[in-house]
Structures are given as structure tokens and as C-alpha cells.
Nucleic acid binder design. Structure first.
Lengths: 345, 345
DNA sequence: ATCGAGGCCTTGATCGATCCAATGTCACAG
DNA sequence: CTGTGACATTGGATCGATCAAGGCCTCGAT
């Protein structure tokens, strides 16, 4: 057996291709990066040589010369063991897919919640990545301010809640629109007393979603007072919150800030022998897997993560173009997945 | 405002550090890669200069010269919209974390289920990554055979089920041990008729897990015949399978090949007014989030993904060392998370 | 016939690190 | 005083691509 896991011969270089095609290195380079500069017959000859040799440009050499790596850094969000993970997974997937279409790859790295610069700094200074995608802007945005000060190119998935004057490009989902969408759906299927089961007041995202509920319900001339509970984003708090709502406010629908809370609400209903979708409608948020594990299905607001990825990559390309072109922030509309827990009566 | 998102000055190079410290470039290089070669006072001088300038080695240049990128390629598994995703997320997290400790980063890329070489080939030829971590070895392993033939270094998470003679390093979780662990736990809490609710026979992983159940139950002198059902890995099949078992085999425990199936089983119990954990115990597999969303909690076999990541990275380091050192395959033991659905009677 | 313009292609330098071979320094034995 | 070897440090070449500038054509205008 020969030496295992070592390629026997070195891969062909651009110079090899040049020799074979009978042209200079620069011409081969142009064939790859600026084909219009070549005469058609020369181009064909070079392309043949490339194909025959199975040549692929060496990234390290190209990176060194062009001072760019065509890599996008993404800090793998720390495991919350919560519902957000599955969401992120969907987003990362879309992002990877979209990056590929633009010739980028995604570099995952681990960060440190305490010090935002950890990880980022090393990658920036070593020119390992061209830009970053930042996801958890709701943690008080220490990293975005750090990145902005360092003039590191990045695009955020999530508004700069804490510093609305921030100038960096960002893409986010309109939580208020999602809340309103869900509330209007519940109104359309004949619900009159629509309760809100949401997160605590210090959650900007939660308050955003909630504002959509408030607006839509008031718009219909229906009450919101006494019909809201704010709890932690856990199954048990969701159950307790829903129990309280059911016992004290007699809602015919519960709109929840997350699928986790919605699952809790479903348990509270079950304990009382109330059938979801018939007696009391339940709607969640994020369209996580849990929504599909409910028999009959949980109606849920679905975030357009594929679109978010598209916009994020577009913003990245603008940022990395020269001259850089800053795209304006984008706020995308979520959609609603109607399932059994909000059937029409 | 100056040009946005462009660093005003070029970062310092190794030569800058050398000038400042009054030594040659090579000495600075040695200070970084082989500090033992330097006299202590020289080393200190160089390190001071590095700190003062805030120098970080340029990756592209280093990669070009050393022919290695210190990047590990990981094909982001296609979204199955199934339970496996959450598992993968945990694994990826551990992997990223572990890679960091070894000075590696993870490069995510999108692949194509049809043609395994897509993605891999480009990254290999362009020397973008040093090695791959391959995760979905259960799909008939087209990519592992391709990678082996191309002599691309890689480590698999998952046995080479289809080609046991494969020589590449791999790490896997002992599903049989997990099945046996869960079965013995059920025996220990006094269960006598332990049913198996598993995947169809063509699932190697499913059959592996099942074999542990068979062995443990037989070892206790208890029956397995008529106590097994094999269905698709969906909530509804789980419910139907469990319903059949409950109606026909009268088990006092149901051991499931996945949490998804276990959730289905719980629904079947609920429909019959049977209390899980008291009347019939239920145990799942994979310890997914769903297991924690069950009130009281679902007992589940937890895969040691953190350990898997450790072993995978260790194998990678062996592979990339020179001379390469192939570590023997590792089969890791899962653990059991005992929760409400298998309480002692 | 000569010149200039433009299209097409080539040559040499360069990016920033490491590899390699060689040199300088020093203590100590012959 | 020279030879030897171990250790510390250096200078030049190199990895494989792109940049910047310049050369060689061809062709039409003078």
C-alpha cells in the first residue's frame, strides 16, 4: 500500500495549464477571471487544457494575492437547548446554500458570550474571512458595536435593537406583521377573545410580535385588556400562563410568542379537556418541528428564513464589492402555516 | 466619513515584526512555530514586538506555503425536517468547539444528494480544506467510497455499514448498547413485557438498536416474540404502531427507536387513557428537545455527541499528522436520561 | 512606406508566510 | 591556535496565483 491519504502527485497549477495551452500564465488567469479579454479560439484552447488537466485554482495563492478568502464567518450560536436552535439550523442551511451560489463558503467558529471579540478578532486579523454574518443581535449587541468600530464588514440577521442609529446592513423579520397576521387569521375563523401568551417585557422580539396582536385585535374593535400573559419561554411557564388565561379570561384563542409556549398551552387545554382548534384555537410562532409533532398540527407563524438568507448574501455582496455598496435594511414578512389547532368552526 | 468597511492601514506582516524586534523573518517564524529554537531573551523580544504591533499571521500566505488550510470541511446535512437535525446541531456544535481547541475551523458547504462528489471535489482540488468530516454514512455511503478512492483524508461519524472492510477512520455510537441500556433500565424498574417500536428492517441503525433490546430482554428470560413493531420514523406511524402493540401485545413498556416514535406512542397512550410511566413506560432514543417538551419528561437514550466530536477531531489530527497515524475506529457508549415516562413503580 | 491605435498576450514583480541551506557564535577538546 | 560540534540566526528561494506594465501584432490612416 502506498502512503495513505496523501495525493500521489501535486495538483496541476496555472503554469501547467499555460504550458499545455501554449499561452502565458496571465492568459490562463484571464481565461478564468475575465474570459472576455481572450480571443475565442485562445479561450477554447485554455479551457481544453484546464479540463484535460483537471485544474482547479489554488485558493491559498489566490487569497494571498487578492487579499480575500471568499469565506463568510458565522459564529455558531451557543446551544440554548431551546427552540431557537432549530430555527437557526434552517437559517444556516439557507445561508450555506445561498453562499454557494455566490462563490462563498461559510466558516463556522465558536465564540464566547462574555467577550464578543473572541473568535472574530483572530479571524479578521488573519484575513481568514472576508466578512461576518451576525445572528444574535438581541443579546445587547456587544459584537455588532465591536465589529462596527473595527470596520469589519458584516451583515446582521436581526435589527440593532439597542442602537437604532447603527449604520451596518441588516435583515430582519417583521414580528409585528407576524403577530397581526396570526391575529387576523384567528379573527377570520370567527374567534373573538384572542389572548396573547408572550415573553417577558424585556424581550424586544417578544414585544414586537405582541404589538401586531394588539394592533390587529384593536382594529377589529375587540378587547385586549386582561387577555395577555407574559412568561418565560419554557414549556411549563407556557402551561401555567395558558392555565391562568383559560381560568380567568375565558379566551377562545391563544396566540403565543413561540411554539414552545404554544405546546405549553396545548397541555393546559388537554388538562382541562378542552379540544384545541374546536373549543380554543392555538397559534404558535416560528413553525418549529414541534408544530408538526402535534397531532393535527399546530398553526404557526413561519419566518421566511430562506428569503432572509438571500437578502443577507445580497447585502454581503454589496459590502464586498468595490466600491462597497451598502444595501438598505430589509424587513421581511412572515407567513402563516395553518394547521389543526386553528381550524375554522 | 472615510471609506467604510475598509481597514485604513494594512495589517502588520511578519517582516514588520522582524524589523521591530531586530531579528530576521525566519526567527519570527520560529518564535511562532518552534519557540524552543530561540534563546529565551530573543523569544521575549520577538513576542513583545508581536504584541506591540498586534500581529497575526496571514492565513493565506501560511496556507500557500504549508499546503494546508487548517479548515475541516463539513457538508451541511440537507434538511430532513426530521428529528435528526437537532441531533446534528448538537454534534456540529461540539465539533466546532473541539476544532477550535486544535486550531482548526469548520467550513460548511452544501452538497448534492445525487452526486456525492459535488462540493467535495471542488474543495479538495482547490486545497480549501485539509480534510472532511462525513456524517451521513447511512445513505449507502456513496461519498465515503468516493473520498477513499480519491485518497482525501476524512473521518466519518457513523460506521461504514455497507462496506465493513473500509479502512478509513470512523467514530460511532453503539446503538445496541443503547438499546440494551434502556431495556435493562426498564427491567430494573419492574417492567416485564417490554415492546420494541422501531424502524423498518432496512435501517441498519434501527436494527442495531433493536439488537440491544432483544439481547437484554432475552437475557432476563423474558419474551420478545410478538412484542415488536417496525414502522416509518414519523409521529403518526409511531402512534399507529404503538396502538397495535397496546391492543394486541399488552406491553407494560415500549422502547422506541427514536423520540419521534416515542412521541407517537405517548399519543396512543393518551387516546386510551393510559398514563405513561405509571401504567406503561415509554423510552425514546436520541434525547431530542421533544423529550423535554413532554410534561414530566420522556426518558431517552442520549448519544454522547460531545465525545464523538472529541474522537473525530482526534482522528483528524492523526490523519493530518506526518507521518499520518490512523486511529482505530471507536464505538462510544450512549447514556440514559431517565425522566417521568419510565418512573419506578 | 510609416506611424499610431488598439486588441491580445507576455514578462517580471508581488502578496506574506515557510523551507532550505548556509553562516555566525561560542565552548571546549586536541 | 585550530578543529569540532551544538546551537542560534540569517538570506534567498519558493508556494501559485494576480497586478502592473510593456511587447508584439494587425490594420487603417497618413
Amino acid at each position: 500500500m502506498t502512503a495513505p491519504y496523501r495525493r500521489p502527485v501535486l495538483p496541476p497549477t496555472l503554469a501547467d495549464v499555460a504550458d499545455r495551452a501554449g499561452v502565458s500564465r496571465q492568459t490562463v488567469s484571464n481565461a478564468l477571471n475575465n474570459p472576455a479579454l481572450l480571443r475565442p479560439d485562445t479561450l477554447a484552447r485554455v479551457q481544453d487544457a484546464i479540463a484535460e488537466l483537471g485544474y482547479t485554482p489554488n485558493r491559498a495563492a489566490r487569497n494571498l494575492r487578492t487579499r480575500s478568502s471568499r469565506l463568510i464567518g458565522l459564529r455558531h450560536p451557543p446551544a440554548h437547548e431551546g427552540t431557537a436552535d432549530a430555527l437557526m439550523d434552517r437559517f444556516v442551511h439557507s445561508l450555506v446554500d445561498r453562499c454557494r451560489q455566490s462563490g462563498y463558503h461559510v466558516l463556522l467558529f465558536a465564540g464566547d458570550d462574555a467577550d464578543p471579540s473572541v473568535g472574530y478578532e483572530e479571524l479578521v486579523n488573519s484575513t481568514a474571512v472576508d466578512a461576518f454574518v451576525v445572528t444574535d443581535t438581541f443579546l445587547g449587541t456587544p459584537q455588532t458595536t465591536w465589529l462596527e468600530r473595527q470596520r469589519v464588514p458584516f451583515v446582521a440577521f436581526g435589527r440593532p435593537w439597542e442602537s437604532p442609529s447603527a449604520k451596518h446592513p441588516w435583515v430582519d423579520v417583521d414580528g409585528a406583521a407576524g403577530g397581526a397576521l396570526a391575529a387576523r387569521h384567528l379573527l377570520a375563523v370567527g374567534r373573538q377573545r384572542i389572548a396573547w401568551l408572550g415573553w417577558r417585557k424585556d424581550s424586544r422580539i417578544g414585544e414586537d410580535r405582541r404589538s401586531g396582536w394588539t394592533a390587529a385585535v384593536r382594529e377589529a374593535g375587540l378587547p385586549t385588556t386582561g387577555l395577555a400573559a407574559r412568561v418565560d419561554d419554557t414549556l411549563s411557564s407556557g402551561r401555567e400562563g395558558a392555565a391562568m388565561l383559560l381560568d380567568e379570561a375565558r379566551p377562545d384563542a391563544i396566540l403565543c410568542a413561540s411554539d414552545t409556549l404554544a405546546m405549553g398551552a396545548l397541555h393546559a387545554l388537554a388538562e382541562r379537556g378542552i379540544t384545541p382548534g374546536r373549543d380554543v384555537a392555538v397559534v404558535g410562532f416560528d413553525d418549529s418541528q414541534a408544530a408538526q409533532l402535534v397531532p393535527g398540527g399546530l398553526t404557526s407563524v413561519r419566518l421566511p428564513l430562506e428569503e432572509v438568507a438571500i437578502e443577507v448574501v445580497a447585502a454581503l455582496e454589496g459590502l464586498l464589492a468595490r466600491p462597497p455598496m451598502l444595501l438598505p435594511p430589509r424587513l421581511l414578512e412572515p407567513t402563516l402555516r395553518v394547521r389543526g389547532t386553528s381550524a375554522a368552526r
